[in-house]
Design a protein around this nucleic acid. Structure first.
Lengths: 355, 355
DNA sequence: TTTGGCCATGATAGCGCTGACATGGCACCG
DNA sequence: CGGTGCCATGTCAGCGCTATCATGGCCAAA
């Protein structure tokens, strides 16, 4: 006979024998205690404790065709933005039987598609994916996933299933409008990697400036390279070399904004007097910088935990009424965009929704 | 009869029928192609492609008592340090059948122990854990894991199995020595969270100053709160309030160092002339800051990929001869510790090993 | 009392895959 | 030409769990 595979670990049958019941009763007592009489339940719990029984996930998955795995696909590990979303997800899943299977698409839709296929082959209980810009086949895979799907960090009117995020275009518009109100007129854009969400922020920037009649494409400085503080310095230097009269920049994320600040310090360019700087995401460092840096606070942790909440509700058969949740964003106005001549009382956290 | 669980997905039996062989042959062709004749192999591959067959992980795991899951436990998602390790791990695992199961211990040994137990119940192929400071029971679990275990990011002489990292004490000693050589004499220490690795860096700091006869415990400023840029500002402010003559600080990580720099800017304290600043980890921003910030470059990505390499070798039965790998670290000397009177030609990247 | 229905529990049969062993064909040997 | 050993392939029996249906006891309604 084949030796036991579990390496000596007790199986449900061992628990059953010890508790003097059949194994199916143990199974029920563990998954659906209501269906077992209190007395047996107690005996079983005792046996479980004594034997230190831990159910075998794989056997369970095979027998029931269900798993407790929630697949999560994000485009980057290094980007703190997603670290916060992840924290929200893991915290939302603590003390539950669910486990996270994490994939990194590296901002590549092809890679994302591959991950999707891999993950789906494991019949996850739910799937959380960053962004709404899947490939056609990726979307098809998601649509046929047979499990709840939550797209996060962006907003669109065509969710595969559910969606939690905010409008990047609206947020780009809001920051740019703020710079205009602060009195800046020759506002540049610094962008790295230029993934779809960045593109939409750029669109918002463009729209706001166009409305004001101040749009000049020459002030847009982008690179496909991935974002970093040094890159922020390089991009600002480039921009100023080409358009020396630029008086403010909207940086598509906080790393770039920090780099821009350092470049200004090096070039002895006064911030905010001669150069306004606004970032995106409002990482913790923005408030600590000197001068403190204006940014757009994005509710990353909340998006993660909200996504988990929606996914769990859907798994339980209670699909939320609102399939698309707009978390909004908040403009955090700080020193880096307070032009001396325009300093005036302003609420420090202006809340926007997808108006 | 029970309906097929796989939701219509083809099983190995379907592939076998289509290829005109038995299912065990399909199984072999997929896992161990050498053992199947080229002709059958080709037929099988064709059938797999036509049916879009994807093996069921759970069935495989149940039948073979093995999985392709590598468990990874890190103490933080938000800390970029571990993001880099993770990238190394994921990159090392790309194009392999292995999957990562990721856990966040939140710097809590208790939580780590819990995660360990959970992970082990899934019989992972290998385990990669950050640090060497497991609880007693955690160590026991690891020792009895029955799979390769790699402890990363630290060094010790008592590996559970394998180990890749560097000496935190030696690196703390190296930075402090550098500050002394640069001419600083009243050197403070800023530390947050004070996890065991931080403690060892502090030990290195203490030893270096004690050797120089300049150790003063009053210059150590720590907090159990977790690290952030703002905290760096606060800690430096505290230190200067208590010990205004402090002329340099070794910050236990780069966030704190950046915060310290901002605080100096705010207080109009010249860096490096009146205050030297050194950080730890050498995140990308350190080189971009103004002035650029001295730090200790830690080979985080390499540690991740090396750990994966060792784990895979061990899984394959080729346990590396060197169970403990010291990756070393590199002092990155930059503007923030170049005191005007002591500026002299120095190699820009001094390599240290666990001397 | 009978009957029907419900509830708690059990017996059975797989889920999709792989380990162990069996089989049959073929090359090579004396 | 029988024997030997090896190789490719197959048969069979589970891995540990749960879906499904069966069973038997109990209570309420008739």
């Amino acid at each position: 006979m084949r030796k036991r595979r579990s390496g000596g670990r007790p199986t449900i049958a061992d628990v059953a024998k010890r508790a003097g019941v059949s194994s199916i009763t143990v199974s029920r007592a563990l998954r659906d205690p209501e269906r077992v009489s209190p007395q047996l339940r107690q005996q079983i719990e005792e046996a479980v404790r004594e034997l230190e029984y831990v159910p075998d996930q794989h056997a369970r998955a095979l027998a029931s065709a269900r798993t407790d795995v929630i697949g999560v696909i994000i485009p980057s590990f290094t980007n703190n933005v997603f670290a916060d979303v992840l924290r929200g997800i893991y915290d939302g899943l603590a003390q539950t039987p669910y486990q996270v299977q994490l994939g990194n698409s590296r901002y590549s839709p092809i890679e994302e598609e591959r991950l999707l296929a891999t993950f789906l082959s494991q019949r996850p209980a739910a799937l959380i994916v960053a962004g709404i810009d899947q490939t056609e086949r990726g979307r098809a895979l998601l649509a046929a996933a047979g499990c709840p799907v939550v797209q996060v960090m962006d907003l669109g009117d065509d969710p595969v299933d559910m969606m939690v995020g905010f409008s990047h275009k609206a947020s780009g518009h809001a920051v740019t409008s703020h710079l205009l109100e602060a009195g800046y007129r020759r506002i540049g854009f610094l962008g790295a990697r230029m993934d779809p969400r960045t593109q939409r922020r750029l669109e918002g920037y463009r729209a706001a400036l166009a409305e004001a009649g101040l749009y000049d494409p020459a002030r847009i400085t982008t690179t496909p390279a991935s974002s970093s503080v040094s890159l922020g310095r390089d991009l600002l230097r480039d921009l100023l070399a080409r358009m020396p009269d630029t008086d403010a920049v909207f940086c598509n994320n906080d790393d770039l904004a920090l780099g821009a600040l350092f470049e200004c310090q090096r070039a002895l360019l006064a911030v905010p007097a001669s150069m306004g700087i606004a970032g995106f995401n409002d990482l913790e460092m923005m408030a600590a910088a000197c001068p403190s840096l204006t940014s757009v606070r994005t509710p990353r942790y909340e998006i993660g935990s909200r996504a988990v909440q929606m996914a769990r509700a859907a798994i339980a058969g209670r699909r939320p009424a609102e399939r698309v949740v707009d978390t909004g964003f908040a403009l955090q106005i700080r020193e880096s965009t307070k032009r001396p001549e325009t300093v005036r009382p302003q609420p420090m956290g202006v809340l926007y929704n997808n108006a």
